[in-house]
Write a protein that binds this DNA or RNA. Structure first.
Lengths: 147, 147
DNA sequence: TACTTTGTTGAGTATATTAGTCAACAAGGA
DNA sequence: TCCTTGTTGACTAATATACTCAACAAAGTA
């Protein structure tokens, strides 16, 4: 049940854009450096995000990438969906025809509930939520005063 | 984020035992036949369940396997845990030391919530729940009258 | 225009995991 | 004793993962 690096790194990449993409394009090499991912892998992670219209880009000197929407409009469920494909724990959830037992299989029901539970988390969290959590983590002492 | 066949088939194996293990040991070949899994693979699926004390067995003619506890005492979280290992979507959830970012990584928090959500489903479902769902599915027409 | 910087794309690859099979063995019942 | 059944470990084909390499395309700069 592991998420692949695509899903995990890709989410970090988006968060990085949300945090650092306020003024102009963010260069892939900067993302690579901050997130400690090779530039070459970052290039591949960003491709499906651009294809999905979640990220925009421009080439050439001073080029880079940025979020196509504001962070509060980007749910993690979309991001993970683009990066990872379906998060269904079994193929039969997305396509009942892949298993002849689908009609009467109760374990299938459970895998479906598992997917629902995950969708619940990822569908209710936006990049903006991550940004805010990050800010709180970066200033643990200051936040303490408000608790 | 797929569950492997071990987790899926193994859960079906346990459900099969809950459904058919009322009178004496259930033979692996019968499970294999009903669940449409090769006998050889069933043999391998049952091994960790026996090792974990979830299933008991006896060899020889008329041998077989059976649940060590009653179905309502067996949570799916235990079963999947034995069969699949941890369901954590990322290694850093089980062991923060595997990633130097664990202390301040907010995406890690989300993967942790994902695990919690899955634990919520699997921890609140027992084999007995599956048995009851199965009974309802097998008699869809009769159930209709009660809805 | 020429050059440099940056993103884009596709091919290739080492490693690990999955999903099994094969075969020898152990033990219990008839 | 023989047959039936579970136990165990070695082995393997196929697939997925997690990348790297390298050629290319487009946009800015001098």
């Amino acid at each position: 049940m592991k998420l692949s690096t695509r899903g995990r790194y890709g989410t970090r990449l988006l968060l990085d854009l949300a945090l650092h993409g306020r003024d102009g394009p963010v260069q892939l090499k900067d993302i690579a450096h901050r997130e400690q991912i090779s530039l070459q892998y970052v290039q591949h992670l960003v491709t499906p995000l651009i294809a999905a219209g979640m990220v925009r880009s421009t080439r050439g000197a001073r080029g880079g990438v940025w979020l196509a929407k504001s962070p509060q409009e980007i749910k993690l469920s979309e991001a993970v969906g683009v990066l990872e494909g379906s998060i269904a724990p079994a193929e039969c959830i997305d396509d009942p025809k892949t298993c002849p037992r689908s009609d009467f299989c109760v374990t299938r029901d459970i895998w479906g509930e598992l997917k629902e539970a995950m969708d619940g988390v990822l569908g209710s969290t936006t990049l903006q939520d991550l940004v805010e959590r990050q800010k709180r983590k970066q200033r643990p002492v200051e936040v303490m005063y408000y608790i």
